[in-house]
């Protein structure tokens, strides 16, 4: 594997990790809002119990994605930074309101807490939709160049069917993934009522998220034929992703085990679904190569200096080795410890 390929694979992996974690994070905020006004339920608590310790960690990954892009592909940064100024600035403002009000809502008095939760839950769900716009923008045809200066062609962005396909995909995936994870989380917490509710949400959202993904591929044929062709030549990833979707979805319907009051195996469903997205992302990423921004920036033309790359690579290895015990402790404390999960 060439250095460029290693770098872009790592970066794409970070994007994937952030996409998953952020979908769950923003989605959980949304569910905590949806169930805020229902009487006598634990759905909101479950969502908050997940969110409280995890949002800060999730937030680190968006910085990791941005810094990863800057440090691995400075050539792409100059173009993307220029054209994404407005979409990402709006995103930053939403992210700020969302995080701050999420924190404030837990510290504020009950009567204000609700309003704050509403704002943070509602802003959260728009964020994935805003961030995913970077994908259709790199299709080509949406960045105009005058006098050697790049600019985003808003008209093309807003009139493209792909844009809306991605918006739908981002929004629905966010809700699907988060309901699925919260189903698993309440299952581990043995909160059967919350489990049933989140399981039901996942069941009706799953097919829509899947349709949106197909819509993305269909519109790609017209808006980015170069990428569609690449995808056609590499069908395996997408097809196996589809198989995993079916598997994960069916896992929600397995007959209930002895001693368990509810049907379905949510842990299996979560794992299968995460792999479903991972396989799809791999196929998608492969089809996008060698371009980062079509047709002006490739992974070769935008690549950082060799010696910088090697130093960065070492810092990644050391960094993740050092942090692994921290992640392990975090997981044990908040995702597995029954004392934390089952508190009332």
């Amino acid at each position: 594997m060439s250095d460029e390929l290693i770098a872009v694979s790592l970066l794409w992996l970070f994007v994937f990790v952030y996409a998953m974690a952020a979908s769950i994070d923003f989605g959980a905020g949304f569910w905590s809002l949806i169930y805020l006004y229902r009487k006598e339920n634990n759905m909101t608590q479950i969502a908050n119990r997940y969110l409280s310790p995890s949002w800060e960690v999730t937030n680190v990954f968006i910085v990791l994605v941005v810094i990863g892009t800057v440090s691995f592909f400075p050539g792409a940064t100059a173009v993307l930074g220029t054209v994404l100024l407005w979409p990402f600035s709006i995103g930053l403002l939403l992210l700020t309101l969302r995080s701050a009000f999420l924190v404030f809502s837990h510290a504020a008095e009950k009567k204000y807490a609700r309003a704050l939760s509403v704002i943070s839950g509602a802003t959260g769900v728009f964020l994935p939709m805003l961030l995913i716009l970077v994908l259709p923008i790199t299709y080509g045809g949406m960045i105009g160049t005058t006098d050697g200066r790049d600019q985003l062609l808003w008209g093309s962005l807003l009139s493209s069917a792909s844009t809306y396909a991605y918006l739908a995909f981002a929004g629905l995936s966010t809700l699907f993934l988060s309901s699925l994870l919260l189903a698993d989380y309440s299952h581990v917490s043995e909160d059967w009522r919350a489990y049933q509710v989140y399981r039901k949400d996942a069941i009706w959202l799953g097919p829509f998220a899947f349709l949106a993904a197909i819509f993305v591929i269909v519109t790609m044929a017209r808006d980015a034929p170069w990428m569609y062709d690449n995808l056609q030549n590499n069908k395996g990833w997408i097809l196996s992703s589809g198989v995993l979707y079916v598997l994960g979805y069916l896992a929600l319907f397995t007959p209930r085990k002895a001693g368990s009051p509810a049907a379905g195996r949510p842990r299996l469903a979560v794992v299968a679904t995460v792999f479903q997205y991972l396989l799809a992302a791999t196929g998608y990423g492969e089809a996008h190569l060698p371009y980062i921004v079509y047709p002006s920036v490739t992974i070769q033309s935008g690549f950082t200096d060799e010696s910088t790359f090697h130093a960065l690579f070492v810092s990644y290895l050391v960094g993740f080795v050092v942090l692994t015990p921290g992640f392990w402790l975090f997981w044990r404390m908040f995702m597995r410890d029954k004392k934390y999960l089952r508190q009332k």
Partner: peptide, 23 residues
């Protein structure tokens, strides 16, 4: 990156390490 794209181009090539380790 949004306001100083040309600066970050140099940063990415030369002084990416501290940003990375900071993460």
């Amino acid at each position: 990156s949004l306001l100083w794209p040309q600066f970050m181009k140099v940063v990415g090539k030369v002084i990416a390490l501290p940003f990375q380790i900071e993460i």
